[in-house]
Amino acid sequence: MSKRYEIRLAGLGGQGLVLAGVILAEAASIFENKNAVQSQSYGPESRGGASKSEVIISDEEIDYPKATHIDLLLCLTDAAAEKYLKDCPETALVIADSDLVPSAIPEKFRSVKAPITRLARETVGKEFVTNIVALGLIQELTGIVGLPALEKAVLDRVPKGTEDLNKRALEVGREAAHEYGAHILSAKG
């Protein structure tokens, strides 16, 4: 991994992106002892407004806590894709929900489209684990955090009684990485 890895998770309030960012950062900082900062921005609405969560993971001290050179962009709405793709350098990996982001991702990016929300709703059985499915997908595609750390971080944060559901969501996300992102995984080697 390079010194500083920048992740932006973008969509709507209510999709669990802030929590997803917190979990990812905790996996890196608490369970893998790297440096990580999570931050977010959102509007005054409690749900339904645009929401953005950012995670910086680094082996070094993290000064500026916001993304300036995005390595990974997750888009769970078309509006998020429209707004943030233009901020991304060509080296960025773009992951989008194929049902919620109908626009094409420009070919200059490495990209993966997967029906993340539908997988949560239909395969796992609860739409509210969309964020955890996304984390499974991100973990398998990038390896930015290890699976044991991510699983611990997820189980630390989710409500009691939902552990199995969330473990299953991680698994479904990781399987989706192979089904929809084989081109990325094979390029990684």
């Binding site: 917190v22 900082s29 440096n35 990580a36 900062v37 999570q38 931050s39 977010q40 806590p65 916001k66």
Partner: peptide
Amino acid sequence: EIVAHMREK
């Protein structure tokens, strides 16, 4: 707000 809402170890 950034210091108030960002998270670190």
